[in-house]
């Protein structure tokens, strides 16, 4: 009997220890932080102020999903903590961006390549993370003649710009949602002179009131140069003359601008019906007169 009691106590004790251990394991799992993946991109349009864009993702149930609300610190140079571009917080798409501020102009000019750095210090939910991106300074020049667009890609070599061979360039027309390719070829590669040319085959594309459209030549997601683009306005589009029926005779215009057909049809019906009714009222007086004559 005593042996049985002892066995029961041992069993209960073992179960309690097991439960405690498993609970401890559970807590330790809950305290584990998730890791973040940061991707940096470099953008420069029309040789103007460049900006750095960051995309932050985290793995949820085995899939990468955007991480919102992540504070990042951006630096111009990986090795210099004094070159802060700025602090950003990612939006609901896990994205954020910052322009290189004018205060870093001298640091920006001091080198032909820069290695941008993004750091995250970590918080209760995520481990700290960092990412860098090395970009060589480059530019595109665009020229047009006889419905042909030519782009020249240059790279900064110390103090001079030298043509770059073998860079993929896209030519497009700027539209509201995205850039429309100028012809059926998606990309063109620069030759030894750094040139790539494309024929413009969007003749009937609507432009502004003067037929102006904006052409764009761009290098996208290039390992060496990042994203650079240049634009040029040309009068190659069809003139867009806006058609407005404001203040004309329409169904939705003011009362003095009712469509003529509506006035005629409705007026005709109203006159016809009410004329009949007036005659029928007059008929009552005729009947009355007949009655008085009979008297």
């Amino acid at each position: 009997m005593n042996t049985m009691k002892l066995l029961n106590k041992l069993l209960a004790g073992s179960i309690a220890v097991m439960l405690l251990l498993s609970a401890n394991k559970g807590f330790s799992q809950g305290a584990e932080k998730a890791s973040l993946s940061i991707t940096l991109s470099y953008f420069e349009v029309n040789n103007q102020l460049p900006h750095i864009s960051a995309m932050v993702k985290t793995k949820v149930d085995g899939r990468f999903k955007p991480a919102a609300g992540i504070p990042l610190k951006l630096f111009l140079s990986k090795d210099s903590s004094g070159t802060v571009i700025g602090n950003i917080i990612t939006d609901e798409n896990g994205q954020g961006f910052a322009f290189i501020p004018p205060s870093l102009k001298s640091e920006w000019k001091s080198s032909k390549t820069h290695t941008f750095l993004a750091t995250f210090d970590g918080n209760k939910k995520y481990e700290s993370a960092k990412a860098d991106l090395t970009v060589a300074k480059a530019k595109i020049e665009i020229s047009t003649s006889d419905k042909t667009i030519t782009a020249k890609v240059f790279q900064l070599n110390d103090t001079t710009w030298v043509p770059v061979k073998g860079v993929d360039v896209k030519f497009g027309v700027k539209r509201l949602g995205a850039d429309l390719p100028v012809n059926e070829t998606p990309t063109f590669t620069t030759d030894s002179t750094g040139q790539a040319a494309a024929d413009f085959k969007r003749d009937s594309i609507p432009g502004d009131s003067k037929g102006n459209i904006v052409l764009v030549a761009k290098v996208e997601d290039n390992d060496q140069f990042g994203n650079i683009a240049v634009e040029k306005t040309v009068p190659w589009g069809a003139k867009f003359i806006p058609v407005s029926n404001f203040n004309e005779r329409t169904l939705f215009a003011t009362r003095d601008k009712a469509p003529i057909w509506l006035i005629i049809v409705s007026g005709g019906i109203i006159i016809a019906v009410w004329l009949t009714l007036i005659l029928l009222v007059q008929n009552i007086f005729r009947i009355k007169k007949l009655g008085q004559e009979t008297e």
Binding site: V273, T276, L277, L280, N283, I284, R286, I287, K288, L290, G291, Q292, T294, E295
Partner: peptide, 28 residues
């Protein structure tokens, strides 16, 4: 309706008016 004497002419005018009203009221 004191003027209604029920004469044939009155009857005809009234009948005509009722017929016209019957035709007019349907589309309206």
């Amino acid at each position: 309706g004191s003027f209604w004497k029920g004469s044939h002419k009155q009857y005809l005018l009234s009948k005509k008016a009722i017929n016209a009203l019957c035709v007019a009221i349907i589309p309206v």
